[in-house]
């Protein structure tokens, strides 16, 4: 089990998504289903009934693998919205 998986298990959270902002330079998102919008200043992904939006400058997808995504750039804001 990954570190995040252990943490969510400890918190009693089952499934869902996780977002980690590393120093405003990287954002790690886990539990995504698909990309919604990809742009230089905004990247949106969907996770079940939630759309997670990462806003910033010079954003690029560093890695997309299965349900995980790493976004690199100048991160200004990370928000989520229920669909």
């Amino acid at each position: 089990m990954s570190f995040i998986g252990e943490l969510t298990a400890k918190l009693g959270i089952c499934g869902g998504y996780s977002v980690i902002n590393f120093n405003g330079e990287y954002v790690y998102v886990e539990g995504i289903e698909r990309l919604v919008f990809v742009g230089e200043n905004e990247i949106s992904v969907s996770a079940k009934r939630t759309v997670i939006t990462v806003e910033g400058e010079k954003l690029m997808m560093e890695e997309l693998d299965g349900g995980t995504l790493i976004i690199k750039g100048k991160i200004n804001c990370v928000s989520q919205k229920e669909m």
């Binding site: 919008f37 990809v38 742009g39 690029m60």
Partner: peptide
């Protein structure tokens, strides 16, 4: 790359991995 991924995302295509 981002342009293509955005175009795919708008059309509802699920990209499993890049």
């Amino acid at each position: 790359r981002a342009r293509l991924l955005d175009a795919l995302a708008r059309e509802g295509i699920t990209v499993k991995r890049v």
